[in-house]
Every structure is written in structure tokens, then in C-alpha cells.
Amino acid sequence: MLAPVLAWAKTAARYPRSADHMEAVLELSEPLVHWLAAAQPLLEEFLGWWIESPHAALEAHQVEYTRLFVARWGGIPVPLYASWYLDRETFRGAAAEVTAGFYEKWGLAWRETDLKAPPDHLAVELEFLEILCRDVLTAPREAAEVTLSALALWQEFRSSHFDRWVPCCAVAMGRHATLPVYKVLALTLTHLCEEDQAHEGHHP
């Protein structure tokens, strides 16, 4: 259940470069509305806008993403990486190093993309969780330096890292977002962290 939700969140946490990206945000959202009912009216609002005026909607999302997460006339209100929250507002701080260690435990290496999202970027961490959920059987665990079960790694990653910063990020996002997609992303992150807290031992 959680893997598609994580896939949606990962997509929403990436820069909406193109119309295809916006379409993907919509196409991946079906499981999300089952998991988080509050998302549906907001996503419907977004879909209506998208159908009516895709060009304007795309640019509005690009401006909103830039304003919230990258560069803004009023300072960046919601940096999307862990180091900001855990390492006194730095970029690529110790938290980035910590995440790379987790990825390596599952036989994965962080790969730099064209937008150079750091290893502790929200989208990267969400993809890691998605992989743990989705790809337990095929992940190349045998090559990892330390072999852990997906569950143990999930729990360790969540409790020692992800859940230490994502709730703060989600609160800031909820406060500053003006477009439905980012309001839904904030709700999703909050729900994800709260759900895990409510169900101690819950696994993907």
C-alpha cells in the first residue's frame, strides 16, 4: 500500500520540469486518495486547473516549487533536505553523509541527477523508502557491507533520521504552500510520520 504513496510523494517532491511530470503527479495519485482521503479534493482542484490551463498550471507549479524549496525573494521557507533541519541549516552536512551510509547498507549508491538533489533530499529519501517497500526481494543485499532486513533498515532509517526532520519540513510546507500539490505533499508527509508513530512496529 505504501510504495505507491511514496512513489507519488517522491514525484511531487521533484521539480516539475515538464507537462509529463505534472501528468505523472496526477496519474500516480490514485492510491494516495485511498490512503489519505483529505488529498482528494485538493487533487481534484489541481486536475481541474490542469485540464483548463496546462501551461499556466505548469509555470505556476514551477514558480511555487522554486519559491518554496530553492530560491525565493523572501528566503527559502522549506528547504527540502535533511541537513537544513539536522545540521544547523547547512547544505550537504553530516546528515547527507548519514543517508549515504543507509543507502549503502541496502547495496545502493546515490546518483547525482541534473538538478543535483543531494543524498539527503526529500525526494531521494522517499525513493529509498519506496525501494525498501517495493524491491525487498530483488535488492542486491548480498553485496551490501552490512546485511539488514528491509524492515530493520526501514525502522532504523525512519527513527534515526527521516522522522527527525520530515515532520518539521511538512509543517513548514503546509504553512507556506499555496498550490494543492504541495499542500497534499505536506499532508502526505505528516500522515506518513504520524501513521508510523501510531502503529509502532508498522512495516512497509
Partner: peptide, 8 residues
Amino acid sequence: WVFFKKIL
């Protein structure tokens, strides 16, 4: 996978 590659 966008952000990861396997290490052998």
C-alpha cells in the same frame, strides 16, 4: 529509480 544505482 531516479536517484540510485546498484553497487556490486
